[in-house]
Design a protein around this nucleic acid. Structure first.
Lengths: 111, 111
DNA sequence: CTTAATAAGTAGCCGCGCTACGCATACCGT
DNA sequence: ACGGTATGCGTAGCGCGGCTACTTATTAAG
């Protein structure tokens, strides 16, 4: 998968990963890995700044905890984040509908 | 539609628009507009440089013509461009499958 | 005692879609 | 005659965000 295909869709992935559960950053990366069948292996330099952006935007909140001597910052959705997730999901549906239409419609659609 | 959602998918759109027909830049923009039901209104500053990139990459070739006193640069796919389009289409399918899985799989998939 | 796994983070690069222009011709309304 | 709109091509430069590469720290395995 080409690197910048994710552009503009990363927030949706992160919010969806946190939907209904709270996870720390490293666990989010693993969840994304497993949830995508290994297709998504996001580097920390992608995920951590994105989580900070989401927190600044008020879509997630974080709490520190220590588990087995390691410090974890655990994130969870806010109500605004839940709303943002809903918006991202419908934006994604609209986006794929549009692109699917163009990608598929070229050959057989007009006759 | 947020601006950079297209990131990494513009080439696919352009190649698909040129699939089976030859169009000049302005007509490509209109075709994209109509083919998307008005959702895609790409500025020339997006499309023209992208077409030049595709030409540099050998995916399209262009010929100049004059129609009604206006100069047109008409593009068409090369064989490499056709192959690139096929690759873009399957990459798109894979991409949407992955994102759909993550976006949909959060809540109800695992129980 | 070195390597790998777990865990968080930052600095800076780079590509590309977009904004904002410039240039030119044709057509339509008034 | 002239302004506005549509047609048509193009470039310069911004801005953003995902990525590379790096640092720091603790634990577990070998």
């Amino acid at each position: 998968m080409k690197p910048d295909a994710l552009r503009g869709h990363l927030d949706a992935l992160l919010l969806a990963t946190l939907d209904g559960r709270q996870l720390h950053g490293y666990a989010i990366i693993e969840a994304l890995q497993q949830g995508s069948g290994g297709a998504l292996d996001l580097p920390t330099g992608t995920v951590y700044p994105a989580l900070r952006r989401l927190e600044r935007a008020g879509h997630v909140v974080s709490d520190w905890s220590t588990v087995g001597g390691r410090k974890r910052r655990t994130y969870r959705l806010t109500q605004a984040g839940q709303r943002a997730l809903n918006a991202e999901r419908s934006a994604w549906r609209e986006f794929t509908t549009v692109i699917d239409g163009v990608l598929g419609g070229g050959k057989w659609a007009q006759q």
